[in-house]
């Protein structure tokens, strides 16, 4: 069975139609990339999948393991195994990164009827995951995303993904604002999480990221529709031609 099936998805934001019929099927263990010009609806798609309030599905469906998730709240979807690495990670003043991560882990345990994590065990597990991403102990103590550089925020998103071990992760422009070294660290972190059970949807504006996270499939999103799909070579073509050919001028 496919892990994720998006069928004829139409969605509006504040009554404005943004997604206009998206079809996408993602098999377990595969990485799909979505590319597209600014304003084409990439982030909107990620929010609709994650179940953000205010993003209304007007037609179509999203299935996880063959079952519709549209009636589920955002937190229920998260616990079912959906993860979104935010394009703009949100600051939560006063809440230490570790506290936040532990709360997220415990929410899953509670749903599974398991006891809360042991604080020492949790720290140990966390330390293993932080090494790979170059997240320091000092970063773990800081408040969630507060005063983080762009690169730190993105690494922090991937750290959360590593700790929460989702079955399906959407990475929304995880490359934006990163220099090449930071990009490599993030890509290594993501690649380490690739597994036969886990699928990913990597959203990016630039082809560059896909040199490091090599996708199984590439789709082009323009004006709320998938206008082209192909293998990883499609990304290279786009690099050469730009998005102009897809009916949408390059927007700022």
């Amino acid at each position: 069975m496919s892990l994720i099936e998006i069928k004829n998805l139409h969605a509006t934001v504040d009554g404005k139609p943004i997604l206009k019929g998206i079809d996408l099927t993602i098999e377990p263990g595969t990485v799909h990339a979505i590319m597209g010009p600014n304003g084409s609806g990439k982030s909107t798609l990620s929010y609709v999948i994650a179940g953000r309030e205010g993003y209304e599905v007007t037609d179509g469906d999203i299935l996880l393991d063959g079952k519709s998730i549209l009636e589920m709240e955002a937190d229920e979807r998260a616990i079912a195994g959906l993860f979104l690495a935010f394009q703009y990670p949100v600051e939560i003043p006063g809440v230490a990164n570790t506290t936040f991560l532990k709360a997220a882990v415990n929410a899953r345990r509670k749903a599974a009827g398991e006891p809360e994590v042991d604080a020492m065990q949790f720290l140990k597990m966390l330390r293993e995951k932080t090494k790979l991403l170059g997240v320091t102990d000092e970063m773990l103590k800081r408040a969630v995303n507060v005063g983080f550089s762009g690169g730190e925020k993105k690494r922090n998103e991937i750290l959360q993904m590593a700790v929460l071990e989702p079955r399906f992760a959407v990475l929304d422009e995880t490359d934006s604002g990163l220099d090449i070294d930071a990009l490599k660290i993030v890509a290594d972190g993501v690649n380490a999480l690739r597994s036969p059970e886990r699928s990913m949807l990597v959203i990016t504006h630039y082809q560059r990221l896909l040199d490091y996270i090599v996708p199984d499939k590439v789709h082009v999103l323009a004006m709320g529709r998938i206008v082209a799909s192909g293998g990883k070579e499609l990304a290279q073509e786009l690099e050469a031609t730009g998005y102009a050919g897809y009916g949408e001028p390059e927007a700022a």
Binding site: A50, D75, A78, P89, V90, E91, A104, L164
Partner: peptide, 16 residues
Amino acid sequence: EDQLFYCKQRGLSEED
């Protein structure tokens, strides 16, 4: 709303 959604996306209930 951003903070609430961020927390919920990580699995926290609205109240948590």
